[in-house]
Design a protein around this nucleic acid. Structure first.
Lengths: 213, 213
DNA sequence: GTTATTTTCTAATGTTCATTAGATTATTGG
DNA sequence: CCAATAATCTAATGAACATTAGAAAATAAC
């Protein structure tokens, strides 16, 4: 047994995959254990050999989802040379976040899209995990700011929320094929750092501001 | 009867408000007619005098949600002088979008957050309405581009999806009090048009690019 | 104020679903 | 091969819920 993996482990994973996929598509309440079981080639009752309740299954899916994206973004920073330019660090983080979300994404997507609709008790337990992930992003942006790479007239907290919003929302519209995830990450960073305004527009804006002042 | 408003109309509105609020919080499947009825000071059975089914109620909530934000953004453009600078047009649109979402937002928020989890048939009927709204934003950005206000190395479609993502996601985190919605709209536009990178960072980035090339 | 109409309530009905208990089948260790 | 354990299945239970039908209450018309 080179790879320690009992039959139970295999079934468990199959169930979790099926659950993540179904929760993501239909939401928590609308997903029946029958659907999950069918997608995992089982009968509904058999799920209880592996999980004590629908809620426990949900919670494990959510945990996997947040952990994966957290770990991916964290590793993207650890794998970076200490003297990497701030721009590259941010780009690596955006890339890792998007890749986790869009490529192997049922768990993370499920976490994002059904979060507001799960039982209160479970949601409460998820909040600290989300906060920890949020803090990771805060550190990444704060480091860039200390390195002098960010303007000082933008609110870092709002930047973070808006950026994570733009990234997380991609699960609602991204379809593979057209644009690669890496290209998308590049694009996001370009927009984020340099803006989408033409140079003339920037001057125009500045002029407007003076006019008002 | 200056304001034509029968008792029926009043109840109907009360039910719709309650439904929007509850759908938004709990999701579609997890919301029971009992909850909606209680929030509207009624018994569950009484809802059927006004609506034929839970689905019909849902669909009306969704319609109101998309219509409100669509109309708000549309009016923001119509109320603008023909020679208004592109930056101001975009800012007005962002402001209108955010205000609708966050201020009187149960309907629009419900539409956004439960969309993926509603019955297939209803979702199909919502899609064209979403497309129409998306097209409105496409026109706004395309107009700015024709006016030479946008860089030509960004993909307008992706800009739109990322911007709408950042805006829509705000329903998940925005709490009134701290920052005003108008200030937030300004901030979004600043970031969007000018970017968050410091000037040195921009130069640094450009240098990196040359180094690679 | 009495009647007709509108609106709401009460009390079923039937369905769907999570969960359970016990039977059945597969897998593993000797 | 044979037991012992693990994994899955089958069928039943009970609760929650959308929906309905008919009674009751409120409102409007005259």
């Amino acid at each position: 047994m080179a790879i320690e993996q009992s039959k139970s482990d295999i079934s468990r994973t199959r169930i979790l995959d099926a659950a993540a996929k179904t929760f993501r598509q239909k939401g928590y309440a609308a997903t029946t254990l029958n659907e999950i079981a069918k997608a995992a080639d089982m009968q509904a009752g058999s799920l209880y050999y592996h999980f004590n309740s629908k809620d426990e299954l949900l919670e494990e899916v959510l945990d996997i989802g947040i952990n994966r994206v957290h770990e991916a973004v964290e590793e993207s920073q650890e794998n970076m040379p200490a003297d990497a330019p701030p721009y590259e660090r941010i780009r690596a983080a955006v890339d890792a976040h998007l890749t986790t979300l869009l490529k192997h994404g049922d768990y993370t997507s499920a976490n994002i899209s059904i979060f507001t609709q799960i039982p209160e008790e479970i949601r409460q337990r998820q909040i600290p995990k989300r906060d920890a992930f949020s803090a990771l992003w805060r550190r990444i942006l704060s480091r860039a700011q200390k390195a002098g790479a960010l303007r000082d007239d933008v609110d870092p907290g709002m930047v973070r929320m808006l950026l994570l919003g733009a990234l997380n929302w991609s699960v609602e519209w991204y379809k593979p094929g057209k644009t690669s995830i890496h290209a998308m990450a590049d694009h996001v960073c370009l927009m984020l750092l340099e803006g989408i305004g033409a140079d003339e527009a920037r001057r125009g804006t500045a002029a407007d501001k003076e006019k008002v002042a």
